[in-house]
Simulated scan of single mutants.
Amino acid sequence: MELAFAASVYPGNGKRAIHEIKTKPLRSKLFTTKKRSFHNKFLCSVAVAPDGNRVSEVELENKKHDLLRAVQETQRGLIATADQRSIIEEALVSVEGYNMGAPIDLVVLDGTWRLQYTSALDVLILLEAAARLPFFQVGQIFQKFECRDRLGGGVIRNVVRWSIPNLLEEQEGATLVVSAKFDVVSVRNIYLQFEEIKVQDINISEQLQALIAPALLPRSFLSLQILQFLRTFRAQVPVRNPGTGRRSVGGLYYLSYLDRNMLLGRAVGGGGVFVFTKAQPLEL
């Protein structure tokens, strides 16, 4: 809006300058030349700067696209080969270089992020168990940050959708939530203090419902109570250090890249890398 307004103030016909030439020829001529010179330089700089920014944005989006394409066929990292991991690492480093050193923006970080790829062993073990065991499924995995209205930290919830076929609904039969508090300890590092593990949102399958309370028979008070219990079941276990029994389980997490639709992280100490994309909000 400001650029359009500036162009309209100094029209190309220069009528005001012509009027001043009649009364004060020398002064008006100099004034007109400087005015037009400044105006031309201003327009030139405006044309160049946005083009440079636009090229940079296009390059960044291409790098992000390359990264997502590289992880697409790895089943979130489960079946990634050594060559694929090398290509992914190279793509990660390429994207990370765009805002390296920029401070963490908690407003942008706030929200739900869907896991696209990881090399973290604790997550891969979970995915491998689902691949090997016919009675266990793992659906979507999320990280939910709650930090928009907080200073220097917030809450992070690792959310895993899982199921047991024929007993629970496919992919989203139940939800596992690992909650932690986090504090921003440096420009790009946050420290996680894990607090509890919770199982909630049990969605039993139609087969199990029919077994507990058949639709063709009168449903007893007991069968209805069992259904209600399963649907509202929630188990909470505090996270404690197995050596001391205290709540001292935590670790550093390096947020290597962040914008409004992509989050890259590295668990400090060789715990693996994570690639997330922005997802719809989760209600927990």
Rank of each mutant, 00 (worst) to 15 (best):
A6R: 02
K15P: 15
K22V: 14
L30R: 10
F31Q: 07
C44F: 13
A47R: 02
V48N: 08
V55I: 14
S56I: 03
E57C: 14
E57M: 13
V58H: 15
V58M: 15
N62D: 12
G77S: 01
G77D: 08
D83I: 11
M100E: 10
D110R: 05
G111L: 09
R114N: 13
Q116A: 06
A120L: 01
E128T: 08
A131N: 10
L133G: 05
F135L: 14
F136K: 07
I141Y: 02
F145N: 01
C147W: 00
C147N: 00
L151K: 00
G152Q: 00
N158K: 00
L168P: 01
E170H: 13
E172T: 08
A174W: 04
K181R: 08
V187C: 05
V187R: 08
Q200R: 05
N203V: 11
N203P: 06
E206R: 02
A210R: 13
A213S: 15
P214G: 10
L222T: 12
Q225M: 13
L230N: 11
T232C: 08
V237P: 02
P242C: 06
L252D: 10
Y254R: 15
L255P: 05
D259N: 15
R260D: 15
R260K: 05
L263Q: 06
L264Q: 09
R266P: 01
G269N: 10
G270R: 06
F274W: 13
P281M: 04
L282T: 04
